[in-house]
Design a binder for these strands. Structure first.
Lengths: 129, 129, 129, 129
DNA sequence: GTGGTCTAGACCACG
DNA sequence: GTGGTCTAGACCACT
């Protein structure tokens, strides 16, 4: 899986990393149970510090997206364990969506175009529960 | 319009402010050409620093959501000027949506539920071009 | 509040820190809404690195024990917000207790002595909901 | 006795092993003087490295829970030798309890519920001195 | 060889 | 002046 980092972005490196891995899982680029690169390896590949990668992995672990097997490093969580979600998530999703839709509306993107865009993106998601 | 600030949120105060005003414009709570409170007034109402409000206004201006007249203060941009979409915006929107949809997918929210949620939110938007 | 760190302990420094602050909150040594020392200050007092203190604070924040106010630093969460607990916690508590009680039993501490010990400790807890 | 290992847990494998055996002894699942599986056997059953099991056994031996006879393998210590309490143990127990009770208090578990929980767990302990 | 922890010191965003 | 981020490099625990 290809991961690209923007050093000049306003989002922290570890968050960019976290986001791309989440997307990778959802699109199926990273299969369930698939092994992730080691902290050191990924850090070297991206030319960043190991602690930065470490932080990204810690967050992903804490969020339940990956598990750390002490013997073989990090891997994507098995499908069954991913769906444990509180109602918090929906509320948070709603809040994020409201802002995005507000901006889209003002910029002249109407609902049908927006929904079409969503469909396109959903079509990329190969994640199987 | 009611603006509420969470001092202990992860998102910076000025960004919370900016977001709520954008949403206010999109929902029609803030009409086109409507005058916004003065920087000093709003800062006092919310109990925060004037520089913070100032920063929010500057960003909104730079993004084209509001116009600032040195004599009359800030007001919401007229409808006509808002629609300057630009492919930048669409690309950025797509990126944000991709992340949100990825997370939703993994958490078990399927496309129909997601689209339904979007519809609900779109129904709140009263912004007229 | 007095915090003491054991550099030679097997529990990580940030966790020792986290534990002592949790106990401080429960015993009332740290009142609700009370301001915690700054990261730098505490690091200097204890002779450890700022990032270590930072990590402890991050965890406490993520666990809901403290909140970070961008203007004035970290403070103990208000009483009302602390009690939001899932059933997870009880299960986890049960597991921890089982191990402790197993060890106590084998070492010859009977139930009455154990319960008495609990009572003594509970008497130190001044935390008010 | 059934031992289950979580490869993705935060607690080291050898410690999980050690804990479960201690609990097994306290609940009576493992009788005094009962023979434990050989290191090799247990490692194979659990699909882990023999060194890991070895480490767990070493710790249990050093803590006095089991005795290791080079000819006959490991077995649970006879009842009489277990009760060597020592004030160390009580102090350590007190420290562990303090943290647990602090967390429980903040999470809104009151003393009566806590004590009830302890009673339930004590009822499972069949260890006879 | 893996991730986890810690350090010393730097720079940035926020208010 | 606050916490947040990042680095380079070191050592440790676990398997």
């Amino acid at each position: 899986m290809v991961i690209s980092i923007h050093l000049d972005s306003d989002t922290p490196l570890y968050e960019q990393l976290r986001n791309q891995i989440v997307i990778g899982i959802a699109t199926g680029e990273l299969a369930a149970e698939e092994k992730l690169p080691t902290v050191r390896q990924l850090a070297e590949d991206l030319g960043i510090n190991t602690m930065t990668v470490n932080k990204a992995y810690s967050i992903l672990k804490q969020e339940g997206y990956i598990v750390i097997d002490r013997r073989h490093g990090a891997k994507v969580s098995p499908r069954s364990t991913q769906t444990q979600d509180g109602s918090n998530h929906t509320a948070q999703l709603e809040e994020q969506l409201q802002l995005i839709i507000a901006q889209a509306t003002i910029k002249g993107i109407d609902q049908s175009r927006f929904q079409a865009l969503c469909s396109t993106i959903f079509a990329q998601m190969k994640y199987q529960h």
